[in-house]
Amino acid sequence: MKLIQIAGFLGSGKTTTIIAISREMSNRGKRVAIIVNEIGEVPVDAKIMSDYGLKVMDIGGGCICCELMINLSYTLEELARLYSPDIVLIEPSGVAIPSSINDGLSMVKFPIERGPIVVLFDGLRGEELLADEDLSNFIKRQMINANIIVINKIDLLEDEKIKYFEKLLSGINPNAKILKISAKNGCGIKELIEEVLGG
């Protein structure tokens, strides 16, 4: 069972990206399950994903990077027992710190394969968020431990802006692979899948 985190700030497109990835992976014969953690008590993202026939388990009422880490561990065990997925995509809340989740996976008591940490960058709202000092610091905290940084919403961006973001994000985390996608229209999704499955 390979675990892949698809993290990123609020509104960066995690749910849309996970739907796109899951459908493509399923088409390739992979059994895919999704764990969603949302701020707020009701699982809107889980409902959205279920509309696409995807296997989803939600963890609500807090953040899995801290107070709900034990819930993540139990949920993974349940998924392994009931569904035996090849791939588990984890969508943390938009305010989770990806490295904290990754560290917490040491609580899982059965063998898992840790896939890459993927962090989405909101190409549409990115500049606005980075112009705010506090938001900028938070987003950089999310980016700093990513294995793959993905610029999303490229269908709404000019090429020059994409290049600007590639350079900017590379400066924040020089070790991360930078990819670009439009989760909405599917552009770049296959390349992202190749990267996460091969990593």
Binding site: I39, E41, V42, V95
Partner: peptide, 13 residues
């Protein structure tokens, strides 16, 4: 204002 879980509030119903 440092961004943290404490100053991002969500509500759902």
């Amino acid at each position: 204002m440092e961004i943290s879980h404490e100053n991002i509030s969500g509500y759902g119903c």
